[in-house]
Design a protein around this nucleic acid. Structure first.
Lengths: 332, 332
DNA sequence: TCGCACTCTGTGAACGTTCACAGACTTCCC
DNA sequence: GGGAAGTCTGTGAACGTTCACAGAGTGCGA
């Protein structure tokens, strides 16, 4: 009735506990006869190792915690993000690590996460959409716990390694494309200026436009559709003659699109519109959005790889940025 | 240097290991003096209980696994789904249970999940978008492991309790609304017929239309945008005079919208279009989609509650369906 | 033939808890 | 004053592993 233990397997196989353990952990120095016998016994008894017992003695936890920062603006925003999570689960599973999800919203949550991790219940931490100035970051660093961020943590780029898309380069791609299309007065709707996407996509925009990027043509949004709508309205009021807009996310672009339509502007004829992310909404607007694709699966792969390297004892693992791609559709 | 154990706390507080344990677990029969002393010692030493040791003796795992079925069509499809996950994490955390994510794609994955769970590494299982006929379901049931599904598991409604929206009722709401708007020839684009949303939304549609729901006006999609496009094209070819379409998801509705536009039909003037889910795309199309809102947060709450009841030893916990709401926008 | 290196196996101890038990000390009632 | 009931505390054993060690067997070269 009870779950079989290593002793039961040993008895069934006619070997000792130690030999079973060796088979389980793939040690060398176990005879083929003994190996076969234990393997059969394991199958017969339906034995599964007790992770609590194992981790108790090995002093490892066998799990990695993924910390979701709250408010939780970007992550999970579109189907691609599920790719990110799935990738993480898969890669971790290959190493027999399980993924535990935690939320870091208020100070209490952060305290909980920190206790959990410092308590040795996780071998590493995967940070998602962590905000600039989040105290968890320094706490993790101070406790010398392997941590990686999915996307850079503003102000702590050298503390927590990360994998991210080339935000700046992507923004350059889009801006350059708009220029090439003959657009003369190009505006931008940025993300919040405490996120890498907010800051670096604006930088890329400015890189290409140089001094032509006047402050008048820049408005800030908060990644939401609504903020895209209102930012577009402000831009239109201030510069009615603009002929292109680069929104730092597809969702904001879709908001901008509504405002443009309401103002009687045709897209792309009167105003060209570019987005960023290549999320699901990019295909559902009319016209479909010309945008910048982030290779999220690849970013996720790299994030996990960095964490595993860190867990394996690497002292310092460099961050990674992967290139983006311009996806031309109908809006620009 | 090493992490403090219960012995260190006991020594620091001048009490015994047993007393510290009692304080930790909130037993009665511990004097205030002893309690205060241990609490101070815990704070001083920065002690955190070792879950492996605790779970080893208590024979519990302290975690719940969320099984994501692959291919992973619907879940995570829109921001609302992050609400579902977050809700689960939160409620579980209140009970000191952590959420472990696993994927059940191929047989190997399922084997892994089963071993993990049967090995006692999880106190319960949360099934996400599990398919009809998934062998994991019966395996879980056979092993008498507490399991709940987020949304019904077709064919196993009486085996695995679930929380879901009232799929059928929601479809009735939408269909009734279209009828009330004076639409005479109403078509439907369903989801896959091995999912509850596929089957039950069609049932609701048929409930309202009765014998007026001819086979000619029904097409099947697979939840994707593309399938919505092509299903719409087939409907249009067969019944060019249709004046309304109910798509079983917003994403498919957005595909249908493209096809309608390409065919020169105005929405809602010529053809009214209804969606389902009230996902992010519903707001980003033009016109914005009239749709049926699923209260995902509430569904998630109920799902977790059922699981906790089961874990607490309840024999049989009834499934829950929560009502949907018609959200009228511009497309119908 | 001896000794050394290599392969293989079993065993005791440890990991850090909880739980059951036993014992000590109060309080209170008869 | 004695006993019962209630409160509080410490201790040994157990949970199921891994690890280090010791010892036994085998093969091979000097």
């Amino acid at each position: 009735m009870k779950r079989p233990t290593i002793h039961d397997v040993a008895a069934a196989a006619g070997v000792s506990r130690g030999t079973v353990s060796r088979v389980l952990n793939g040690d060398r120095y176990v005879s083929t006869a003994a190996r076969l016998a234990t393997e059969r016994a394991i199958a017969e008894t339906g034995y599964v190792v007790n992770l609590n017992a194992r981790n108790l003695v090995t002093q490892r936890s066998g799990s990695v915690v993924m910390v979701l920062s709250e408010p939780h603006e970007k992550i999970f925003e579109d189907p691609n993000d599920s790719t990110a999570i799935r990738t993480a689960i898969r890669r971790l599973a290959e190493r027999d690590l399980s993924l535990v999800m935690m939320i870091a919203g208020d100070a209490g949550d952060r305290e909980r996460v920190l206790r959990y991790v410092k308590g040795g219940h996780a071998d590493g931490v995967l940070l998602m959409s962590t905000h600039a100035g989040d105290p968890l970051v320094d706490a993790l660093d101070g406790a010398r716990i392997p941590a990686v961020s999915f996307g850079a943590v503003i102000g702590r780029e050298n503390v927590i390694p990360y994998a991210a898309c080339d935000e700046r380069g992507g923004a350059q791609q889009m801006t350059r494309y708009l220029v090439e299309q003959g657009r003369k007065k190009i505006a931008m709707i940025t993300g919040p200026m405490d996120t890498p996407g907010g800051i670096q996509r604006l930088e890329g925009f400015a890189d290409v436009l140089g001094r032509k990027a006047s402050k008048k043509l820049i408005e800030h949004g908060d990644w939401t559709r609504l903020s895209g709508e209102s930012a577009m309205a402000r831009l239109l009021e201030r510069s009615p003659d603009l002929d292109a807009v680069f929104a730092a996310s597809d969702v904001m672009a879709s908001g901008a699109l509504s405002t443009l339509r309401a103002a009687g502007r045709r897209v792309p004829d009167d105003v060209a519109l570019g987005g960023f992310d290549d999320s699901a909404v990019a295909m559902s607007t009319h016209p479909a959005l010309t945008t910048i694709r982030q290779p999220l699966a690849e970013i996720a792969e790299e994030t996990v790889r960095i964490l595993l390297d860190l867990i394996d004892g690497a002292e310092h693992v460099p961050s990674v940025t992967v290139p983006t791609r311009l996806i031309v559709r109908d809006s620009a």
